[in-house]
Amino acid sequence: MDTLQLFLEAGFWMAVVRMATPLLFGTLGELICERAGVLNLGIEGIMAAGCMSGWTWVYLGGDLWGGILFAACVGGAFGLLHAIFTVHLGLSQHVTGLGITMLASALSSFVFRMVLPDVTTPPKIVPFAPMDIPILGDIPVLGPIIFNQSPLTLLALILVFFVGWFLKHTPAGLALCMTGENPMAVESQGLSVFAIRTCAVVVGSGLMAVGGAFLTLSAFDAFYIGMVNGRGWICIALVVFSSWKPSKALLGVVLFAAFDALQMRVQQDVSMVIPYQFYLMMPYVFSIVALIIMSRRSAYPKALLVPFRKGER
């Protein structure tokens, strides 16, 4: 197979955009948390909880969009837990985040087993169908890649621009960024650091869970234990890669997904001399190299990881 030719195929780019979708939700969610100054290592578990809760909602008879909304609420609830520990009690963001990941992952498996005690092969649901938008879908090249996708993919792309706009041009976005830079600046202007950080973590966690729900309600049609498979951790790396900017996050996510899609295509080719494990490694090697290059220059939010305690010097 000619690798160069692969890049010209619309099918390849469709796969890239599809694979990018859960990462896009996760990265935007993490970016919102970190811009407010809170690292959320609960992302891996929150995505798993989103996977499970969205799927369970639909399996028990709810509709697909209801499943997405339910997943967002479950994610938001874990976010609230994270915020109570790290924002209000000022505990370590690393430890709390890892704890949330373990709790949410384990709870997801547990609830799944409770709902389906005696099943060996996971049952399936009817996932989101690709959209069929009349005019936009007929645009050559771009049409199938962007508009013949699941509606969640389109939502994720719109969100990139919305979050970018929100952070840059709205008063609330300014307050959020300022909280991540210097909480005292926010407090001395009469705004509540606690409220802003809590909101950011809840909303961000909700987005992460939607990214998880995409896996069970759109990319696949069943829930497997461990299906998030490190995507959450990749999102954390992508946030650093993006220098905490949504537009660059889109670039990073697409790059990563492209490597991932390439890896999948290439490893199917049996005539290849190189063992397929090397291709499996590719996206991760890429993210490490990209991190090394980008993070030297990136200006991280100054108050990231610093708890704010009112009334202390």
């Binding site: 008063p171 300014l174 307050a175 960024c177 300022m178 830079e181 210097n182 005292m184 600046a185 926010v186 407090e187 001395s188 202007q189 009469g190 705004l191 200006a299 939010p301 100054k302």
Partner: peptide, 17 residues
């Protein structure tokens, strides 16, 4: 109580609207 990475304008207008 200023945020170093933000502009003077942002620092002044924060929370005023």
């Amino acid at each position: 109580t200023l945020a170093d990475n933000m502009s003077v304008f942002d620092n002044i207008t924060l929370g005023t609207e």
